[in-house]
Amino acid sequence: MSVKAMVGSTAAELLRLRKWSAIWVIVGAWLALSLSFGYVFNYVSYKTGDDNFAGDGASDAQLLAELMPSAIPDILVSGLPMFGGALAMVVGALVAGNGFGWGTWKTVFTQGPSRSAAVGGSLAAVTVFMFAMMTATLVLCAGVSVAIAAAEGQPITMPALTDLAQSFGAGFLVLEMWALLGFLVGVLAKGPALAVGLGLVWSLVVENLLRGVGSLLSGVETVTDALPGTAGGSLAGAIIGGPNGTPGVLDAISGERALVTVAAYVLVAAVAAVVVMRRRDLA
């Protein structure tokens, strides 16, 4: 696989992804959800004095602190284990799976790049989009939190760069893991529908049920500790400092172990997708 072919494939995939409205709808949904659950509901609760689902029992001072720029690292990752991962998975499944139904993998493979380069380019483009999604989230969080601080007459205290970098890196890895797992399932299912359906049921339902069973049976717990949802949730939990009541944020495994597990899923999903596509007949 030549570097030139890989660069060409990545450029081609970026061109078609950035013109795909479905991708922007998903990015928009993610940003809207991040804004709503990270700031809007808490701010409304703070202003009105009503309890909300996340700030149950929290004082006004605590609620306001969570809305300040210094809390960006926490807000940045808190939505990822639940809806962020699910949306990233949908992106991956759509990017890989639709190529079978539309016949575009066939067209691409007859254009000359090796299959490894073509699939590698697609994975690289998805990675760029996940990075961009994370960057957009950071910009959104910074903008909104600074605006709230200004509106409430609070000092604008930015978080430490190391905290911000850790949070951004962890969040990006969690998104990347789910996106590449979605890509792999899209490749295996040869279509987006089954991949999206199965992926969402797995990430949102099955893993939670298994964790429920795992709390009763230690043997099952050993398995659930190695699952992507547990790893992603625990990585977010390590950044936030433990479960804060946000669905999906866990402390099931240590931050280090969670990081290694998430990274392993990223690597395995990427390699497996390339291997399957290299060996597959495109009939």
Binding site: G103, T107, V108, P113
Partner: peptide, 30 residues
Amino acid sequence: TARIGALVEGPGFYPYLSGRDNLRTMARYQ
């Protein structure tokens, strides 16, 4: 494969892209 041009069992393109952008995408692969 890079030296072959092929249309096999119907055209496979991205439906949301224009004809030109579809070809630009394929051209970038080459």
